[in-house]
Design a protein around this nucleic acid. Sequence first.
DNA 1: ACGTGTTACGCAATCGTTTTCAGACCATAG
DNA 2: CTATGGTCTGAAAACGATTGCGTAACACGT
Lengths: 354, 354
Amino acid sequence: MKDVAAIAGVSVSTVSRVINNAIPVGARTRELVEQAIGEVNYRPNLLASGLRSKSGNLIGLAVPEIGHQSFDTFIKYIEEYARANKYGLILGDIQNDADGEADFIDQLIRRNVDGIIFIRVSDESRALEMLNSTTIPYVVLDRGASTATAPTVVMDNHQAGRLAAEHLIALGHRDVACVTGPLNVSLCRDRLDGFTQTVSAAGLRLLRHDIHESDFRFESGVKLVPALLERGPPVTALWAQNDLMAIGIMAGLKDHGLSVPRDVSVIGVDDIVSCRMLRPQLTTVRQPFREMSRAAVELLLRESALGERISEKIAIPTELVVRQSTAPPRDVRSQCQRVLSTVETLKSVAEEVR
Amino acid sequence: MKDVAAIAGVSVSTVSRVINNAIPVGARTRELVEQAIGEVNYRPNLLASGLRSKSGNLIGLAVPEIGHQSFDTFIKYIEEYARANKYGLILGDIQNDADGEADFIDQLIRRNVDGIIFIRVSDESRALEMLNSTTIPYVVLDRGASTATAPTVVMDNHQAGRLAAEHLIALGHRDVACVTGPLNVSLCRDRLDGFTQTVSAAGLRLLRHDIHESDFRFESGVKLVPALLERGPPVTALWAQNDLMAIGIMAGLKDHGLSVPRDVSVIGVDDIVSCRMLRPQLTTVRQPFREMSRAAVELLLRESALGERISEKIAIPTELVVRQSTAPPRDVRSQCQRVLSTVETLKSVAEEVR
DNA sequence: ACGTGTTACGCAATCGTTTTCAGACCATAG
DNA sequence: CTATGGTCTGAAAACGATTGCGTAACACGT
């Protein structure tokens, strides 16, 4: 910067003003300085500027686990919106480790970040209290537990449950079950409420043992299938509170020789990219990743500009994405008919081959 | 820091020495200072320390696209190893946009990062030349093109092609095809070479029109299926150079009423998490994500410590992961047998139902 | 008693910016 | 011609750490 100043024949203050295009600087001078900047290929040092001006144009993002498709989608969009606003993104994987999280937050504080986005803070997290002793803004995306007063962006989880239920009811299902995430996290309860309310308003009964609490993981979906099947009169439709479990359930059903959606319909939540890669493609309730990410970044930047926390709660509406994994419940009579005609076809083919 | 010094009754220099536990500092003094640090809950400012000492303990990661399972897996492990070494990770999504990339690199240079990891630099990338005019170390992971002299970490792509071919040959396939990524990126050529060499060494012929060049995307796999089927004598096995395309092909085959692995075997490369979520589960050649990430971070840190570029090329060995999507080629006679017995079963079931 | 070496610590400069304050310059109005 | 005000620019003090250099204190051998 000193070099630039020397070349342009001005002082460093002026150079600084040109860079941040502050107002009181003459057109001729500005031109001179800009030329000098180009000449030495000068890049202002963000550490120094951050140190002095208290803003390094950097935000932090804490995710529960990198490599989960839904979190990764958030990362993608948050990076996009952050960059669009000239902010850098520093990423941390929490991995369900409260100490690791504390370390990460500590690092962010020490780096003087302009704000922090959390995806789903856990119960044992000390992060928010750490931050409350500072002035650093934060927002919680896809909220977990115990974030009563925090600025928050979520999808409309109640609506999500309702949409799933309405879809199954409209298809004619009378006997449904559901698989939830951990019920100590509020978004799971919200989704469940929306589902059960709609279901019972339609006159169906959702029995206690048809609500299975699980943990959002694919393998858990697979492992749940035997329990699902062993119940007396089988359900004809199943709602999982996220796609990963839904996909697990579909895999498990297939392993047991059952067919989706003929034998049972399956519907999820999220609309991760895998949904379209399966056969049948998964019907699901879309999580508005892009809109949520955008809202989170904007809320954060608003807090940052304002200089104080905005304890706002934003809920983004959802929508149903109908694909191939849901269908009307099977009807024994027509089923039987189909089997018989298939038999005839097969028989003639086989004879011919022989 | 001044406060801490005042409380402990020492100078700031001493406090600094305690923090970086430099050697010449008395045990008693150290204790005093540490106590003072705890008292005011002091956190050293990383911007200031970075500014002065020229190392902010930060590395940059440029990925071609967040949200691709394989890249996300790299992100996960790189974050893990970076953090294990007390480094922060700042993430950028390039999205095939050379200008965006240049912006990101510029930002990193200005932040004085200790190093940069690239996943797959593209052809039009100006990033490497930008960096060559600085002293910032970098390493290229899963290399693309034109990185002749750059420090590089790759999987053993030739071996990957060989393993895939060997597996199919061992199963008894004589008529195979393959779907590649863009052949102007070297790793695709390497994989292909390994495959074709092994195949022809075994006496099979891989015809020119059985090598389909594609672009690593799921949809491309789906769309390729008609072309695959319309060729005269059908192939019995298919190798895709990544899992996403392999999965697309499996979906496309299913859409055309064909069954994997009964009608055709499919094998991929990568071992992304989705492989286990499908039915049939995808047989594949594993990309050693974890090992590669680790090697990249370590190489970077070595360069950083040494203060100069190490133009080393590290190739990590691969392994085959056999799952459900590959099987011996179908045999018309036994196939026919199976159909006949199925017919009998169905018939009796149907009669019973009626 | 003195030189010599070692260890522990403080002073002050420094990293590369931003920002306050004051001064220079010019135009306009009185 | 002088007061007044506005616009532009420069000097210098921060920001919060690290670090080279100097010095006090102490132990040791002579």
